[in-house]
Write a protein that binds this DNA or RNA. Sequence first.
DNA 1: GATTGTGAATAGATTCACAGCT
DNA 2: AGCTGTGAATCTATTCACAATC
Lengths: 212, 212
Amino acid sequence: MPTGHFTMNPELSPLTLNRLSVYLRALRQVHLEGTQRISSLELANRFHLSAAQIRKDLAQFGELGIRGVGYDVGHLRGRLEVVLGLQREHLAVIVGAGNIGSALARFPGLNSGNFRVVGLFDVAPNRIGVEVGPLRVQPMSELAPTVAARQVELGILSVPADVAQENYEMMVRAGIRAVLNFAPLQLREHDGVRIKNVDLLIFLEELAHFLG
Amino acid sequence: MPTGHFTMNPELSPLTLNRLSVYLRALRQVHLEGTQRISSLELANRFHLSAAQIRKDLAQFGELGIRGVGYDVGHLRGRLEVVLGLQREHLAVIVGAGNIGSALARFPGLNSGNFRVVGLFDVAPNRIGVEVGPLRVQPMSELAPTVAARQVELGILSVPADVAQENYEMMVRAGIRAVLNFAPLQLREHDGVRIKNVDLLIFLEELAHFLG
DNA sequence: GATTGTGAATAGATTCACAGCT
DNA sequence: AGCTGTGAATCTATTCACAATC
């Protein structure tokens, strides 16, 4: 299987990227069950996806499947992990030790496999030092040193909206490379420091629309 | 019928719906600042949106703006609130009083304005009765009575993946109308009980892709 | 003069359907 | 015989550009 080309990102659309994550999750489950091979149709049926779309999505990374047979689960899984940048562990810090930040610090999903939270920061003096799951809340002054020392790539921003922009800027200056933003506002993005917004109210509002 | 046409949902696409929420948030902010009128261009510039798209999105609800002038902020805001089903308060319950569920129960954003959490449920006997913000954790047996008595419409599902489907089914049977799902799996959706998935790991995976 | 609302143009995403491998 | 990979067709979304309106 010639895997020479496409080491450069072929500029995936957000929709495709999202689906690749879904495929990866499905493949990991199938892999755990011991299945060696799976066809696009089986995958589609089991996980309510579109077989044609699975093939189109995957085909852009070369010929990953075997015609007449299907996909090798382990191989495809590995390939998607590389595409999604999950072949190694990524370190993250959380800024904002309120409800959401503290919950995330304790959330096992964020501390197993591909991601690990190595710091939890807050401005409030009365929060500093408090133990939250495996972490202790640290003052903001320790953000930049931590990021530099441990080569932290990801920042999780869980502060109130009115201080979110300045906290984002601090993350940028500290050397963070990408930010997951829980504050309900549109941050002004700095070059090279990508933002992914997670706005719980917007999710609820979308549901509310269907309630009429 | 007070507002004539389009009381029936004109079947908005998820992308449009998402943007309408963003517009509403922007308008609320502008409204608070006391601004009476705003043009699509001003809105676009301030919030990094596309003016043409704002106009196209809004135009499907009739002629909401005034040519040569712009949009009346208060009127447009009200209109979007109706479209998004936010003209009244929606009650919600949380099933799963773990990290995420407890954080959401305490999250002020979910308890002000258009949404109110009126119940927090869990199976674990040692969690029952624990105070979490304004709520006490209740046993699952009280879910259906609560939903029925208070006409709860929204369910927030924050349980582990392996019990998510059965807890979703319980919500459906209890009479919940729409579910925000934090469990990392694809639920089998029942007719009329819409699901919105919020998968934190998928968000991180999308960011990881850009870290290479 | 300014700004909306909109048809036409463009770009993008999904589905179809089948040639080409195994 | 079965399933992938893919060009063509379709569907959807976005942007353009300007006539209609204030």
